[in-house]
Design a binder for these strands. Structure first.
Length: 682
DNA sequence: ATGAGCTAGCTTTTT
DNA sequence: GCTAGCTCAT
């Protein structure tokens, strides 16, 4: 077992100071690869080991569930046998859920609330717009939700929103916001923003509850502090007690979430919020070679608004950072896969190779290429497992069993399998529901009771309702994963899938199996549903030997031996849309993103751009990114890559093994499957 | 009521 | 190139 002394001896001076300084506010400015996670986990272990607090008296907030899990494991490992896990370690969202489950009644909700996903939100907004005669074509639900979310990030419920001028558009949306909040309350549901906002309200409106937690949490640790927004910061402030034992870790150069309301201000003015705070700067980089670090440092030095720190490294020079120019996007994908096949595959585990893109759709070209030549890959982010139709269906059944106010779940489930209920019937039920102030389920019960349906529909509803009753009772008797099996069989959903004998459906059955397997990891239905709602884009399997494809945003906090950064072209990176919206401010954030991308690499980095690329179906000429000109010549090797037309370009190998258990339904994968299907039909 | 087929609009990033 | 949402025929 590692003793605490050993742990501390593994730290450099500044790291050690940061760990030992447990009391009072402190800010750790931690450059990329400077051992931030190591410091945080050691600090956690140190506090527990020194008996400064029990593990459950420490609140520790991370940016992703993966980071939380990682920290959990490390701490357990450090304190083997001496301490239990840290229960209050998680994301802002997952910890908020914990507070809200316990105190839902205090703010007028019930403890078994649902967490809405983006689809649910859109559906709700669309419905409200319809009722309010707002043309969804003129103001898109996405736009409305973006504004609502920004209000929530600023901590404003509908009544607290102050519009500067009586702008009719914002006025309209504010009205939608108001109805939306009423509606979600009826559904006994929270969306992502609500989880944080209502937790803040819970503490503000209930001083006694707030005091419980203020006294309880002796220490608060916050990771990725540069990406917290206004409401998250308020959330923290409400929990910190007089002793102000709060330790925030972050890097202003890696602030990349301002579009989600993140305010670097929180980070830069930490000493104003917490006077007499101690600041520690971790400037030794342990991750990257000198060439990689120099490239990243030179690039980020073009930003004006920085706290300013100098990262240094005692590692070797390493390979030069490659800057490759390709003729077009296709050849870029081809070139990168060739590099992986040729040099990389033998030197590194594919798991330690990542392609980091600006926009998730850029993964498509690589997927197609990898599928063709048979390199295993995984896409982190994009369409998630839990966003697949069959998975959402199964989850919707579970959601309505979990709580009857979840109209959205019930509506999804009503016609799966089909039972002759259409638009008109549904509309009538909803009308009845709003007139009598009932949820969908209770309305259906009433209407069945009062014999208001045609016989066929009545029987169908009768069956469904009694099944739901039965399942709710079953849940008391059997495990949640066994319940899902019952649900799928008894609802007829299983046979619906089994009857259709095509490849796509076989695949759906596979996915359902995978869902059942995943449920075993959670000890009850509610925890599982929570996981479904709050799983982050990188909370996926990392097993096996596969190249990773993800956005630079998703890669924050991760590191890989080899990193490819394709698509360094004006308009794509920096992205045109961000520049249009916010100008210079956005340009600096794009540059920080580039910095995050490069600093993910430990051993080798390959930047590249293409001169032509297909964009929205058409070939477009591209200009190299301005960032390319900001790289230091002496650390870079520039290559112009050319390809002979590939001979087997159209020669699709019919016997290629396809893994149909893939986690993602990505465009490239879909297309391959379609091709395969066509071949099989012949 | 349903499902096939077509078209418009679009993707920056995500808890 | 993709896909959600709409239209129209059944």
């Amino acid at each position: 077992m590692t003793s605490i002394k050993n742990l501390l001896d593994n730290l450099n001076n500044e790291q050690k100071k940061a760990v030992l300084n447990t009391d009072g506010p402190n800010l750790i400015v931690a450059g990329a690869g400077s051992g931030k996670t190591k410091v945080l986990t050691t600090k956690l272990a140190y506090i527990i080991n020194e008996k400064k607090a029990w593990s459950n008296q420490i609140l520790c907030v991370t940016f992703t569930n993966k980071a939380a899990k990682e920290m959990q494991n490390r701490v357990l490992n450090y304190l083997k046998g001496e301490s239990s896990a840290v229960p209050w370690l998680g994301t802002f969202h997952s910890i908020s859920v914990k507070f809200l489950r316990k105190h839902a009644e205090a703010i007028g909700f019930k403890s078994n609330f649902t967490i809405l996903d983006t689809d649910d939100q859109k559906k709700l907004v669309r419905r409200i717009c319809e009722a309010e005669n707002i043309d969804a074509k003129k103001i898109s639900p996405q736009f409305i939700l973006a504004l609502i979310d920004s209000w929530k990030n600023k901590g404003q419920l509908p009544d607290e929103v102050k519009l500067k001028k009586k702008n009719s558009l914002e006025d309209k949306i504010l009205k939608v916001y108001k109805i939306y909040q009423e509606k979600t309350k009826d559904l006994n549901a929270f969306d992502f923003g609500d989880l944080i906002l209502y937790t803040v309200h819970l503490f503000e409106k209930n001083k006694d509850i707030r005091e419980i937690y203020r006294n309880h949490f002796k220490y608060i640790l916050v990771d990725e502090y540069q990406d917290t927004n206004f409401i998250q910061n308020k959330w923290l402030n409400l929990i910190v007690n007089e002793k102000r034992n709060i330790c925030c870790v972050g890097d202003d150069d890696q602030s990349i979430y301002s579009w989600r309301g993140a305010e670097i201000k929180n980070f830069l003015t930490f000493d104003k919020i917490y006077p007499n705070c101690k600041v520690f700067k971790l400037e030794q980089n342990y991750r990257s070679t000198k060439n990689i670090l120099a490239t990243a440092s030179k690039l980020i030095s073009n930003n004006n608004s920085r706290v300013g720190k100098k990262l240094w490294s005692s590692s070797n020079e390493g390979e030069l950072v490659k800057l490759n120019c390709y003729r077009n996007g296709k050849e870029e994908a081809q070139g990168i896969s060739d590099i992986i096949e040729g040099n990389i595959k033998n030197k590194y585990s594919l798991n330690n190779v990542s392609i980091l893109v600006r926009a998730i759709y850029q993964t498509r070209e690589f997927e197609e290429r990898f599928l063709k030549i048979g390199i295993g890959y995984r896409v982190l982010g994009g369409i998630k497992f839990y966003e697949r139709a069959e998975i959402k269906d199964a989850v919707a059944y579970l959601r309505i069993i979990n709580q009857k106010f979840d109209d959205l779940a019930l509506e999804r489930v009503i016609n799966k399998p089909r039972k002759g209920v259409g638009e008109t019937t549904l509309k009538n039920i909803y009308e009845f529901a709003s007139k009598n102030n009932l949820c969908l389920e209770d309305s259906i019960r009433k209407l069945v009771e009062n014999n208001k349906f045609k016989p066929k529909i009545k029987t169908a509803f009768n069956n469904l309702i009694s099944l739901i009753d039965k399942w709710r009772n079953d849940l008391k008797l059997v495990k949640h994963f066994d319940l899902l099996k019952l649900v799928l069989d008894e609802s007829g959903y299983s046979s619906l899938l089994k009857d259709k004998k095509d490849l796509e459906n076989e695949n759906r059955l596979e996915n359902i199996k995978e869902l059942l397997r995943a449920m075993h990891d959670y000890d009850n239905l509610q925890n599982f549903l929570e996981h479904v709602a709050l799983a982050t884009s990188i909370d996926q399997e990392w097993e096996g030997e596969k190249v990773n494809l993800m956005t630079m945003h998703a890669a924050k906090g991760l590191e890989f031996d080899v990193v490819f950064l394709p698509g360094w072209e004006e308009g794509l990176f920096p992205h045109q849309k961000s520049l249009q919206e916010k100008g210079d401010f956005a340009l600096e954030e794009e540059r920080r993103l580039a910095y995050v991308g490069i600093t993910r690499a430990k051993k080798e980095a390959f930047l590249s751009f293409a001169l032509r690329r297909i964009y929205q179906g058409d070939w477009m000429d591209a200009v190299p990114s301005r960032f390319v000109n900001e790289l230091p010549d002496k650390n870079i090797e520039k290559n112009e890559m050319k390809f002979e037309k590939e001979k087997d370009d159209f020669d699709f190998n019919q016997d290629t093994e396809i893994e149909f258990g893939e986690e993602f339904r990505s465009p490239g994968w879909n297309r391959l499957k379609k091709n395969k299907l066509l071949r099989w039909k012949k």
